[in-house]
């Protein structure tokens, strides 16, 4: 923090920090309270901010539901494959759009966005038929392919602006000093692009983790956690919803936590 801040500004600054923290943490805290606070506490009003009784029964009962472990694993697989594929396919496309002027670049950008233009509900039947015929039906890999398609537009557009922000001169300097274009990319551009790629990965992860419809239409036994639970959570008792909600939030939080040091550099905070 800047030591030259006046006390008033300091107060304002910390109030803002506190409000932002509350904004993010309070709902998560209340969900956690609902998950661990016992069945009766869920209906208590006004809510107490401290747990009256701590009970792991719901969470335990929830985790013991047949298939939750398998669904969790499927979700992790689908999300991981989606992250890998959408960065691996999206980043080169973004690089090409940023560095080379070629005919049809604009049309290409529009086409990439077009995959998001069709409501999935309309495509559900033909997609399912196609996936069954190819043999990708009912597997997390098939779901990951679908999620990659959904995540690619973001990956391409985000990485494009990312590479545009990295001066071409740096790359050219690397060529001058004897790097091949590929070497220059990996030694000079890539390290600078890492924070943005991390953000792209988060996007892809969250898209895959949260997606319900494709995941539930394309699978029967090998459901992802979101498809396995989210669809039925809205019809479950409140305390079950809180337990499920917490379980669905946690991995995203952990993932963001894991890549945070690259994210911070995106926001211009150097502290790695």
């Amino acid at each position: 923090m800047n030591p030259a801040m006046t006390p008033v500004r300091r107060l304002l600054f910390w109030t803002l920090v506190a409000v932002l923290l509350l904004w993010v943490l309070l709902p998560i805290w209340l969900v956690a309270m609902g998950a661990f606070g016992g069945r009766a506490a869920v209906f208590q009003w006004p809510k107490s901010l401290l747990p009256a009784s701590l009970s792991f029964d719901h969470m335990a009962a929830f985790l013991a539901v047949e298939g939750v472990a398998n669904a969790f694993l499927n979700s992790v697989i689908a999300a991981a494959v989606t992250v890998v594929l959408s960065v691996a396919l999206g980043a080169p496309a973004g690089y090409a759009l940023a560095r080379y002027a070629f005919r049809g670049a604009d049309a290409f950008k529009l086409l990439v966005l077009l995959t998001r233009a069709f409501p999935l509900a309309i495509l559900a039947l033909p997609l399912a038929v196609g996936f069954i015929r190819i043999g990708l039906y009912d597997s997390p890999f098939g779901v990951a392919l679908m999620h990659t398609v959904l995540a690619l537009p973001f990956a391409v557009l985000v990485t494009q602006s990312l590479f545009m922000g990295i001066p071409r001169e740096l790359e050219e300097a690397a060529w001058v000093f004897g790097c091949s274009p590929v070497q220059a990319f990996f030694r000079v551009v890539m390290p600078l692009a890492l924070p943005g790629l991390a953000a792209t990965a988060i996007f892809a992860f969250v898209i895959s983790w949260n997606e319900v419809f494709a995941a539930s239409v394309l699978t029967v036994r090998e459901r992802t956690l979101t498809a396995y639970l989210l669809a039925v959570l809205s019809e479950s008792p409140l305390h079950t919803r809180f337990a499920g909600g917490l379980l669905l939030i946690l991995p995203s939080v952990l993932f963001v936590f894991a890549v945070r040091k690259w994210l911070f550099t995106v926001w211009g905070i150097s502290g790695r």
């Binding site: 047949e66 559900a124 399912a128 069954i132 039906y137 239409v217 029967v220 669809a231």
Partner: peptide, 25 residues
């Protein structure tokens, strides 16, 4: 293996499996 399904997805799945000619359910 007991699998639950949203009512609106039931028709889609059953029809898709019928068209593709390979049943899971």
């Amino acid at each position: 293996t007991f699998v639950t399904e949203e009512p609106q997805n039931l028709t889609v799945r059953m029809r898709a499996e019928a068209q593709a000619g390979r049943r899971t359910v």
